Amino acid sequence: MIRHFFLTLLLSCACVAHAGPGAHGPNGEHLDAPASSGAAVDAQPTIEANTETFELVGILAADELSVMVDRYATNEPLLNGNLEVEFNGIKAQGKLHADFGDYSFTDEKLLRALRQPGNHALVFTLIAGNESDLIEGSLNVVADGHADGFGPFWKARWPWIIVSVALALAAAAGLVWRRHAQKKN
């Protein structure tokens, strides 16, 4: 009986693992992908901004603000400019990584300020040869949602885990009832 219980529990957990990352819906879509109507809960904060001449996309990572700049009309990467960012009186110069095509901001004072939850208005100053531009954008940083100790793995799977445990308990109860019925006869 105990063996049947653990076998049922194991199969239930395997079903949960099978429906995890990479699962597909009826139209072939990835079920673990972020919904198209909103941002992913655990996504890194990003910024997108443009002017008539240039556009930029940036990601706030743990150790840097990485910003890619290109020409708005052609999407040609801008790899020969100087990029500066200003936020709440803090100015920082980006370092061009030509191999990645991004400008990296690693100023600790800037990063510490940007990591604070809120909607941060950033102003980028771009100088490329005879061209210059001010590009304004907003970086939205949400509070860390893992303060409760449950990361994205458990938050995404708790309904399946509850169903699996309930099925395992129901199977165990059925085995106990069947064993009890056999003893009566």
Rank of each mutant, 00 (worst) to 15 (best):
50 N>A: 15
119 N>W: 09
139 L>T: 03
69 V>R: 00
89 G>V: 02
52 E>S: 13
84 E>F: 13
88 N>P: 07
141 V>E: 05
124 F>I: 03
29 E>N: 07
145 G>I: 03
31 L>S: 11
149 G>S: 03
37 S>G: 15
94 G>N: 08
116 Q>I: 02
91 K>P: 10
45 P>H: 01
92 A>H: 04
105 F>W: 05
55 E>K: 15
95 K>D: 14
34 P>E: 07
52 E>Y: 11
51 T>H: 10
60 L>A: 04
49 A>D: 01
124 F>R: 06
35 A>K: 06
121 A>C: 06
116 Q>E: 13
139 L>F: 07
123 V>E: 13
131 E>D: 11
69 V>T: 00
71 R>L: 13
129 G>H: 08
78 L>G: 08
27 N>H: 09
43 A>R: 05
117 P>G: 06
81 G>S: 08
122 L>T: 09
111 L>Q: 01
119 N>V: 09
59 I>S: 15
35 A>V: 05
65 L>R: 04
139 L>R: 03
71 R>G: 10
48 E>Q: 15
126 L>Y: 08
53 T>S: 14
133 D>L: 04
33 A>P: 09
43 A>S: 11
27 N>V: 00
108 E>N: 14
67 V>G: 12
39 A>T: 09
49 A>H: 01
110 L>G: 00
43 A>N: 00
49 A>V: 06
67 V>H: 12
52 E>L: 12
44 Q>N: 12
151 G>M: 05
92 A>F: 04
144 D>Q: 03
100 F>T: 15
142 V>D: 14
49 A>Q: 06
66 S>P: 09
151 G>Q: 05
104 S>W: 10
90 I>H: 03
26 P>H: 13
42 D>F: 15
28 G>Q: 00
47 I>G: 05
86 E>W: 05
45 P>E: 02
143 A>W: 06
74 T>F: 00
125 T>R: 08
151 G>S: 11
28 G>V: 02
44 Q>K: 14
151 G>E: 04
131 E>K: 06
28 G>F: 00
79 L>D: 14
142 V>Y: 13
113 A>E: 02
40 A>P: 08
60 L>V: 03
110 L>E: 02
41 V>C: 13
137 G>F: 04
74 T>K: 10
116 Q>D: 01
107 D>S: 05
72 Y>M: 15
35 A>F: 11
45 P>C: 08
94 G>W: 05
48 E>C: 11
44 Q>Y: 14
130 N>T: 12
145 G>M: 02
145 G>Q: 10
80 N>P: 09
69 V>F: 04
144 D>M: 08
99 D>G: 04
